[in-house]
Nucleic acid binder design. Structure first.
Lengths: 245, 245
DNA sequence: TAGGTCTGTTTGTCCTGACATAGCTTGACA
DNA sequence: TGTCAAGCTATGTCAGGACAAACAGACCTA
């Protein structure tokens, strides 16, 4: 539609295509672009905003990748029907909770530097026996236990203190060290909790738990973290958006 | 590296960037580009293949999105370390199993046309009371029960026969009708199975099950399917690849 | 030796221009 | 009146060029 106001700041370090995408996304969230409504065609939009067509395309493509828009050649671009759920980004549980207005707290159950076993060495691509940091934490949200987080990190991070982990969450700590996390592979499953896990999580013995194994790689392709987490199924679920291109 | 052979067919309807991406991906799978190895820079690659830089960039970007490559400005493009796991695409369980060499079979437990209740009407964006197809199927793999699949489809598909569902899987059927599925939103959780579910799935009473709710939208943004599935946690898990850009 | 600075490399962003192709509409023709 | 073809519209693909910014390593200085 034409009542789509977009403010562009060409002196900002934020890329133009990103500024545009962000503001269209906002318009969708605010209901200014209701589900099913059609956007102007790329050419007109680009023209109206004083942008080139490739830049405009890139902004739109970003929202298509996010699952907010859908395009069909010869027809146009439309807003997807259905509720507004925000797709999972590459964040940690800590960041997730903070963003949803929660104030997560953490207890460190274990914090030790050990030699890497064969399996951990393989997934972290380090030599067996190399020093790795092994932590186990209990994460609370709204005063209730939510998950047991067990993580292994390669030698470069063995100096991370237990106190820091209580304060800031693993991903925030890594980011503040200049680690640029790019790719994460997750495997999500379920199983009955062990007696210890159920006790920690305040669940009845034998309760079903949601499990997640994750390996995260930085922008050099190196593994920076391997995690084995269990969540209370009664209080947590993963949301994923898949897009076909 | 320079021993990367790429055959281009400019008369093919397959886009050039896709041909390139596919062949680089193949080289990675074949081990010709081992984890951690660096690709030539975009300019040289584009030059060598007789392509423009944008086209070359697009091919590389596609693999970055898939989590196979990682790039860093001023440094270059590298192959991600770690095992080759295929990321989840927008497919159904049936397609997934077939692709892994399994021969899934299906039993239809329920197949009826009913009026949409309020919740189903909302998620499918149809009017309450509209006719929808409601099915419940038991999916086997390698002779063992694997999942109970409950689905609702809007009025346009109420004529899908139970026999067709046994033969071909839901997504294949939809595709053969010209439905272009684009976006799916999934919610993955866990819970204890009901007695009926455990009986169907040949699990002990009260076993933990993996649950998935999914709404799929076509290229017009309309919902074409809502599913509520439960999987045997002992025999199935979801794999997801997240990429940060 | 330790520190910062410069420089080359590589990706990131943005532009203009062109043609191809899929979907829909409209109109001509049988 | 029905059907097929032509044309219009919007997105898809591709080229080539320009400048900006981040990074790593060499170099130079204190």
């Amino acid at each position: 539609m034409s009542d789509l106001f977009v403010d562009l700041d060409r002196s900002s370090p934020v890329p133009l295509y990103f500024q545009v995408a962000r503001q269209i996304e906002q318009a969708i969230e605010d209901g200014k672009l209701p589900p099913g409504s059609r956007l102007d065609n790329e050419i007109h939009l680009a023209d109206r905003l004083g942008l080139s067509r490739p830049t405009m395309r890139r902004a739109i493509q970003q929202l298509v990748d996010k699952g907010l828009l859908v395009r069909k050649r010869g027809v146009g671009t439309q807003v997807v029907h259905g509720q507004v759920t925000r797709p999972v980004e590459l964040t940690s549980l800590h960041d997730d909770l903070v963003q949803h207005g929660q104030a997560p707290t953490t207890t460190v159950l274990l914090h030790e530097v050990v030699g890497a076993g064969d399996d951990i060495a393989t997934t972290l691509t380090v030599a067996p026996g190399d020093r790795v940091l092994h932590t186990r934490r209990l994460r609370f949200s709204a005063g209730e236990p939510l998950a047991v987080l067990e993580n292994w990190l390669p030698a470069a991070f063995v100096d991370l203190s237990a106190e820091a982990l209580v304060e800031r969450g693993l991903y925030q700590l890594l980011r503040s060290r200049g680690v640029g996390m790019r790719v994460a592979r997750q495997r999500i499953g379920a199983r009955r909790g062990t007696n210890e896990e159920c006790t920690l999580l305040d669940e009845r013995r034998g309760s079903p738990l949601l499990t997640m194994e994750r390996t995260t790689h930085d922008d050099s392709g190196r593994a920076v973290e391997f995690g084995r987490h269990v969540y209370r199924a009664s209080r947590y679920a993963f949301e994923v958006t898949l897009v076909d291109r």
